Simulated scan of single mutants.
Amino acid sequence: MHKANILALLTSLLAGALAAQLLDSEWQAWKTKFDKKYMTAEEEVLRRERWESTLKIVMEHNKLADQGKKSYWMGINHFADRTLSELRAMSCLRVPTIREKSASKFQSASSKVLPAYVDWRDEKCVTDVKNQGDYCGSCWAFAAVGALESRYCIKTGELMEMSEQELVDCDSEDHGCCGGFPYSAYKFIFEKGIMASSHYTYKGRAAGCRFKHKKAVPLNITKFYQMSGEENMAAAVASDGPVTVGFAVSFSFFFYSEGIYDDECADYPNHAIILVGYGSEDHEDYWLIKNSWGPHWGNEGYAKVKRNANVCAISDMGAAIDLQ
């Protein structure tokens, strides 16, 4: 073999070895960061294959984002070793009943001039990002409670964490870790009340109901309602506080990192999130959303989603609760 060819082959092999070593290092660092442990060597091999596949997708997407061909970036987070079927199984929003669909809906006054920018975090009325856990489809409870926490703070000046676990355990119209509907969660809270999370802590699994009325947070609820349409939602967020919405999550959203999301969606809303504000960036309107997948997801648990385009059916299943 010609010396030049031998040198080229050796260079290629060395580069491959260094790339493999770097990939090994990245894998170990990722496992450490997210405290990933596997029961068997075979499971780790399968999880690493999934992780490498996700890494490739993320890197290819981010090249397009760097070129201005995508409006958001992706990241390798704690979901990176999950299979597509496992991610799909995280769906946690149930289909509303006919009665729920026909319930009264909020309608904004179309003549009202809305502020250009709203972020309820600026008012110190948004609780820390929470994590529903890997094996409990309780996003509906986290969305309902998170929006209620903010509206309670807006009315009283007290930022208090309330109990998602109570809804998982006690709300019989919903299905605990198998999904629910924020509007019916508000119906339950209106009729029964809700305890502080310090008195009813989150377990990430369904258990027997332990609600105690005497320990319920004193709420003065005037109404709870559904809404649709992004104009209505913006009016509600600006005037009264955060609202819950349904969102049709598909693969790419699980790995959102920053920017304004406007990509692929599922066929129907399968996840519940909270609108905590809105604004515009580089002449693009966006929603500021709070998720329940922990602070390692997105931008410390938050994301921007394109507004006034009904991205992933975000305008179809809104719900809120009003306090006096």
Rank of each mutant, 00 (worst) to 15 (best):
G318I: 15
C125E: 07
N291F: 14
D262Q: 08
A266V: 00
G133K: 01
K187T: 02
D119S: 05
G259I: 12
A15K: 05
A185K: 00
M233I: 10
K101D: 08
S111K: 13
Y202F: 06
Y135G: 09
F181Y: 08
C265S: 04
A8K: 12
G298Q: 07
A238V: 07
M162Q: 10
D81F: 14
E60S: 03
K155Q: 14
L167C: 06
A248Y: 06
S12E: 05
Q132P: 12
M227D: 00
A103Q: 09
K33Y: 06
V145H: 03
A234W: 00
H78K: 12
E166R: 05
E52H: 09
V58D: 10
L148V: 01
I273Q: 00
K112E: 12
Y268K: 12
S184P: 02
H283S: 14
R88K: 13
L114V: 08
I274Y: 05
S111M: 12
A141T: 09
A236M: 08
R48H: 15
L55E: 07
D119A: 09
F34P: 11
K37L: 08
S257Y: 05
E166N: 03
S102C: 12
E42H: 09
A216E: 00
E161H: 13
S280K: 14
D174N: 14
N270R: 01
E166V: 00
G259N: 08
G241K: 01
S71A: 13
E149G: 02
F188S: 06
L84E: 08
D322G: 12
M195F: 03
E258S: 12
A309T: 13
G229F: 08
L7N: 06
R99M: 14
V249C: 03
L288S: 07
A303S: 11
V129E: 07
V118P: 10
L46A: 14
V245E: 07
P182Q: 02
N308A: 04
C209E: 00
S257T: 01
E158C: 13
Y278E: 03
A144T: 10
A266T: 00
V168N: 07
E281M: 06
E264Q: 07
I154T: 02
E173H: 04
Y256A: 04
A207N: 05
G146N: 13
F255D: 04
P96R: 07
S197G: 01
F254V: 07
L10W: 09
A143V: 15
A116H: 08
I154C: 10
C265A: 05
K130E: 15
E149D: 12
S315M: 11
A17N: 06
T83W: 06
F211W: 01
H2F: 13
S110N: 12
Y202R: 02
Y278I: 11
F34V: 02
G259D: 08
C177P: 02
N232P: 00
L93Y: 09
D169I: 09
K192Y: 05
Y38T: 09
Y256V: 03
W120F: 06
A17K: 10
Y117R: 13
V58W: 04
A80E: 00
H2S: 15
Y202Q: 04
S315R: 13
T97E: 09
V243F: 01
T40D: 11
K187N: 03
L22E: 13
K33P: 01
D171K: 02
E264H: 04
V118F: 11
